[in-house]
């Protein structure tokens, strides 16, 4: 089963680094600006249904689109937004502006992707660069308030560090789970746990990041 994930946020918040940590379990200091859009995939096993009986392990392939942060690139991204199952919004805890722009990113995504149910479309919010706690300028409370305001149910919120690999896996796991439950709501199949298998060395994940 294929799940399409789009990751959005201002430039320099660490979108590419988060993806690289999640897909390849690596952090590199020598990132460069993303120009256009990069595409990565990771295979994962989704298990356990709504009644918490650990059966029906489903193999899902996460198809993740990494995008450029500068606004002028967004109008070109329609093809990637369309058909997305979940959207991950990222900001940098040391850059208040990147947090304030979450509204714009969310609206932009809903406009361009035009999902059938905009009210309940799943988003996950990631506050990145937790390793720079000393430079923090966006309080956790403030982000949680925003999440509560922008969702009818709970908008999952994670504070991560792509550098230290803190909570990165958990955030993506949540995104995958939401995407899957969104797609299978009618089938009454809501997975609770998702385990990721394989490492890039075994060739289980394909990456096409440049």
């Amino acid at each position: 089963m294929l799940l399409k994930v789009v990751i959005l946020g201002d430039s320099g918040v660490g979108k590419t680094a988060l993806l690289n940590q999640f897909v390849n379990n690596r952090f590199s200091t020598s990132y460069k600006a993303t120009i256009g859009a990069d595409f990565l995939t990771k295979e994962a096993f989704c298990g356990a249904n709504a009644r918490s009986v650990a059966i029906d392990e489903t193999l899902v392939t996460l198809q993740i689109w990494d995008t450029a942060g500068q606004e002028r690139f967004q109008s070109l991204g329609v093809g990637f937004y369309r058909g997305a199952d979940v959207c991950i919004l990222v900001y940098d805890i040391t850059q208040p502006k990147s947090f304030e722009n979450l509204d714009t990113w969310r609206i932009e995504f809903l406009t361009q992707a035009s999902p059938s149910d905009t009210q309940n479309f799943p988003f996950v919010v990631i506050a990145n660069k937790l390793d720079r706690e000393n430079d923090r300028r966006v309080a956790t409370q403030r982000a949680q308030t925003w999440c509560a305001k922008n969702s009818t149910s709970i908008l999952p919120f994670f504070e991560t560090s792509a550098k230290a690999a803190t909570e990165v896996e958990a955030a993506f796991r949540k995104a995958a789970q939401l995407a899957l439950s969104q797609g299978t709501m009618q089938a009454d199949f809501i997975p609770e746990t998702i385990s990721f298998r394989g490492s890039p060395a075994n060739g289980d994940s394909k990456s096409s990041c440049c």
């Binding site: 990069d38 595409f39 198809q63 096409s208 440049c210």
Partner: peptide
């Protein structure tokens, strides 16, 4: 299977 996104990746690389 599902070649289009992989082609996007391959082309850009």
């Amino acid at each position: 299977d599902d070649a289009a996104p992989f082609l996007h990746g391959a082309l850009s690389k």
